[in-house]
């Protein structure tokens, strides 16, 4: 369902090289809406209808599987509640993502600069990566308490490795001709980093961001399972303990909405930042 979104965004974007007339472009945007939004929407609605009919026909108890109508009822009745806890989870996820990505990019920059640093630091990064998050989450609660910080830290930990690896690859994969040109104009290492390596690594970084943004949300939710009474993770745990399936499903729905929103936002940002990259150049 998420796959067609970039195509849709691409279609909606004005193309500077195409100075013809607006009408064909608009028609195309409409066609693309029809092509890429309609089918998944129809599929989703069909699934919901089948689900609803099944629950009603088989008389499935609500504490096992609630009907979509019941979930939606719960969601809209408690929209303020879900929005509040969703905002908390979102904030933790974004803070964690920023922290993890920031440290990863800084680390990748250091490692790209020196093989010795790479050899000494990279194994540490691998160690961090292979440690199961679920195992360290309770530790973080002991160390950092019940507030937001351990959740942010878990989201950061999940984000860290993919960004590090892709960042390192990106910073290293400078075109030899471009590098030769920078040498020919006597560019300093810093200038080469800021003007060539870092911008050149953005396609690789964004590929990691696309993976890590949803992962950061998962990280925050996992963190919330272990402590505290704020955020969608704790809402899910409490609902589960009370066998309150409508609330549990409504919390999952909120998470899904968050995930879709963040993904679209990431795509959009990527299109803006990487307008020059092959992956974004249409026709």
């Amino acid at each position: 369902m998420l796959l067609p979104l970039p195509r849709l965004l691409r279609g909606a974007r004005a193309r500077p090289t195409e100075g013809v007339s607006a009408a064909p472009g608009e028609t195309r945007a409409l066609t693309e809406v029809a092509l890429y939004v309609l089918p998944p929407a129809v599929a989703l609605i069909t699934a919901a209808v089948v689900w609803e009919l099944w629950v009603r026909a088989a008389d499935v108890p609500t504490y096992i599987v609630p009907a979509p109508s019941v979930v939606l009822d719960r969601f809209f009745a408690g929209i303020g509640f879900f929005a509040k806890h969703g905002a908390i989870t979102l904030a933790e996820a974004l803070a964690g993502f920023a922290l993890g990505a920031g440290v990863a990019i800084a680390g990748a920059s250091l490692m790209a600069h020196s093989r010795v640093l790479e050899r000494s630091l990279f194994p540490l990064a691998v160690l961090v990566k292979v440690t199961p998050i679920v195992a360290v989450a309770p530790l973080f609660v002991i160390w950092f308490g019940f507030g937001s910080f351990p959740k942010v830290l878990i989201a950061a930990l999940i984000t860290f490795f993919p960004v590090l690896v892709n960042g390192l690859t990106g910073l290293r994969s400078v075109k030899p001709e471009a590098h030769e040109f920078f040498r020919s104009v006597n560019a300093s290492n810093m200038q080469t980093y800021w003007k060539l390596r870092l911008p050149g690594s953005l396609p690789y970084l964004f590929a990691a961001f696309r993976i890590c943004v949803p992962l950061a949300v998962i990280g925050a939710v996992v963190g919330e399972w272990f402590s505290g009474d704020r955020g969608l993770g704790s809402v899910i745990i409490v609902a589960h303990n009370n066998l309150d399936m409508p609330t549990l499903f409504a919390a999952i729905l909120t998470l899904a909405i968050l995930g879709v929103g963040l993904t679209v936002l990431t795509w959009q940002l990527e299109r803006r930042v990487l307008f020059w990259h092959e992956s974004n150049i249409t026709n």
């Binding site: 001709e177 471009a178 030769e180 040109f181 300093s188 200038q191 003007k195 020059w276 990259h277």
Partner: peptide, 25 residues
Amino acid sequence: GFVFQEPALLPWRTVIENIRLPIEM
């Protein structure tokens, strides 16, 4: 001044910004 077989322009910079690049160095 060097001209290579591959122009190796920076794709994220406009024409004028590419021309300005050496001056920034």
